[in-house]
Every structure is written in C-alpha cells, then in structure tokens.
Amino acid sequence: MSTTGKTALPRAWSLGLSRGALEIKQFVRQRDAVIFTFAFPIVFLALFASIFGEEFEGTGATASQIYAAGMVAAGIMSTSFQSLGISIAVERDEKVLRRLRGTPMPPSAYFLGKVWMVLATGLAETAVMLLVGSTLFGLDLPTSVSKWLTFAWIFVLGLAGCALLGIAISSLPKSGKSASSVVVLPFLILQFISGVFIPVNQIPDWLLNIGALFPLKWMCQGLRGVFLPESAAVIEQAGGWEYGKTALVLGAWVVGGLVLCLLTFRRWYVRPGGPGWWRPARRRARPPARRTPCP
C-alpha cells in the first residue's frame, strides 16, 4: 500500500512474467501448432539426411551431421522470427492489441510475455533437435565446457535477434490472413542461402554474402563449429568458424532489431487508421463548416 492509500500497480517485469506464462499455456493448448512447430525441422532433417547421408570428403563429418547443426539453427529462428511475426500480426488483426489498451498492462509487458514464450519454446525445440540429431543422425554433442558456453551465447543472441526481427516484421502484413505469406517467404529464402538446406560450399559467394547480412547464416556457422570437428571448417566460406564475427553480427542484430521494433511499431500505431494501442492516433481538428447566409 502506498502513502497515498492506493494499491501500487505491478511493474512491467512482473506483468511480463505473468503474460509469458499465459502465452505458454495458450501455445501448449494448441496441440496442432505444437506438433507442426516441433515436427517441421525434424522432418526436413530426416529427408535431407536420408538423401545426402554420405561423408563430406576431407571434413571428417557426414552430411547428416552438417544438416543437423543447420536445422538446430533453423528451429531457433522458426520459434522466434516466424512465430512472433505471424502471431502478433494475427492478434493485431483480431483487435487483441486494441483490447489490451484498455488494461493497465504497458506495451513492454506484452512484448516481454512474447519473449518468454519464445524462450521456452526455443529451449524445448532445441532440446528435441539435439536428442534426435545425436541418437538418429550421428550428431556429436560437445564434451567440453567451452563448447557448451559457445552454444549458449549463440543460442541467446540468435534467439533475441530473431525475436526482435519477428516483432518488427509483424507490422508489415496488412491483415492476419497475409501474415504467413509475408513472414514465411523471407525465412524460407534465408534457409537456402544460409547453409540450412544446401551446404555452404555449394552456394555461390554472392548468395552467401547476402545471407551474411542476416543472423541465420551466422547461427548455422557457429553451431557447426560447436557440433562438428575442426576439420569440417574447410567447408566454410572463410575456412574457419569465425566466432568473433558471429558474436559481432548477432549482437548488432539484437541492437538493430530493438531499434527497428521501436521505429516500426511507433510508425504503425501512431499513424491515423492504425490499431492505436501503443499510442492513440492524433486526429486533426476539422475546421468549422462555412454557413452561407440565407438570401
């Protein structure tokens, strides 16, 4: 109880935790979404590992191991970028954000709840992918603490950057029905030019340079460095894992993604005709109508 006799409102952090628990419950209750979200990277891993199962010459790693590392990175981006980009656009179209404006919950708590949901689903899907990859496709789990620490910071930075990018891109679809098309297409293209579906040594350099502008390529490269032997670094464009550049690019996407989120949502929610949850749109006062005197 405050000195003025009014009950203090919960802070945004505690509200974000509560909102995150609600988001996780809603996700778990959608069984079809849970099944397809977790099954998508596993099915593609099984297909590519079965088709291209031979060992890459001079690398000491099989194609299934290389694909398994890439699919772990794709799973992280799927549960963050794709999930948030579609779900927020659908909720905006269904006027969920407008209804939340009538509650004391600040916008930061809403987005914190989304981040907690992404963190929980990302951890779960990564654990499933590592289990499937190590038991069925020969993926060697790290045995040193340094490798696991490398995996941890790649996971955190990659998840955060992709989540912020997903929040930003959710403002592009005009409606919830078009959200899947707008979000899935760039994600699918990035998987082809970032070393998920096609080994990086078989991708033209100009496409790899385009993929290097986005976080997925660096997540794939960093995770290959964690799970593959050192001899497999010859397949990379630079001939090495480049952990320093990976941390720099992923960190830049976290900062840039946050700025992009603030800019896109401010522009969307402030403009006239927008949903008006972040800030109400300012309406211009109409000039008084001119009255013609009666003859």
Rank of each mutant, 00 (worst) to 15 (best):
L164E: 13
K217A: 13
V145G: 15
S180N: 14
V72Q: 01
A247N: 03
F187P: 05
T7H: 06
L208W: 10
S87W: 00
S180E: 14
I198W: 11
A163N: 08
F227A: 03
R98T: 01
G225W: 11
R19H: 01
G75I: 06
A89F: 01
D205P: 12
G138E: 13
G222D: 02
R11F: 00
L263N: 04
D140T: 15
T59G: 04
P142K: 10
T79N: 05
P229E: 00
F81Y: 12
L47E: 04
F137M: 03
A233W: 04
M1L: 00
V234F: 04
E91G: 08
S80P: 02
L250V: 09
R98E: 01
G195E: 06
W148L: 13
K174Q: 15
F48S: 01
L207H: 02
P287C: 03
G239A: 06
V259C: 12
I193V: 15
V72S: 01
M71N: 01
R266S: 12
A46Q: 08
W218D: 03
L262P: 05
I154N: 01
K245A: 11
L131A: 14
E236K: 05
G274N: 06
E57D: 13
V226T: 03
L97M: 08
G16D: 00
L139W: 10
G239K: 03
V156W: 03
V226N: 07
K147R: 15
G133R: 14
Q221G: 05
N209S: 13
L141F: 03
S108H: 00
V234K: 07
M1S: 02
I189A: 15
T150C: 08
F27A: 10
N209G: 07
S83Y: 08
P287I: 07
I66C: 04
R266W: 10
R282D: 13
G122L: 07
V145M: 15
I66R: 07
G166R: 01
V254A: 15
T264M: 15
K177M: 11
L112E: 00
F40G: 02
G273N: 03
R11S: 03
S80H: 01
F52P: 00
F27Q: 09
K6I: 11
L165N: 11
W277M: 14
R101W: 02
K6A: 14
K147M: 15
S83Q: 11
I154W: 00
D93P: 05
G195R: 10
F40K: 02
G240M: 10
I167H: 11
R284H: 12
R279G: 12
F81P: 10
I24A: 08
A49F: 03
M71D: 00
A179Q: 12
A212E: 07
R98Q: 05
M219T: 09
W241D: 02
L260Q: 10
A179G: 11
T79A: 05
E242F: 12
L22S: 10
G75T: 04
D32N: 07
C294W: 13
W277T: 13
K147P: 08
I169D: 14
T126D: 02
F111M: 12
G138H: 14
N201I: 08
V128Y: 05
A281Q: 11
L130M: 13
I203F: 06
V156I: 14
S2I: 00
Q191V: 07
L47V: 15
I210Q: 05
A247D: 02
T264V: 14
L223V: 07
P186K: 09
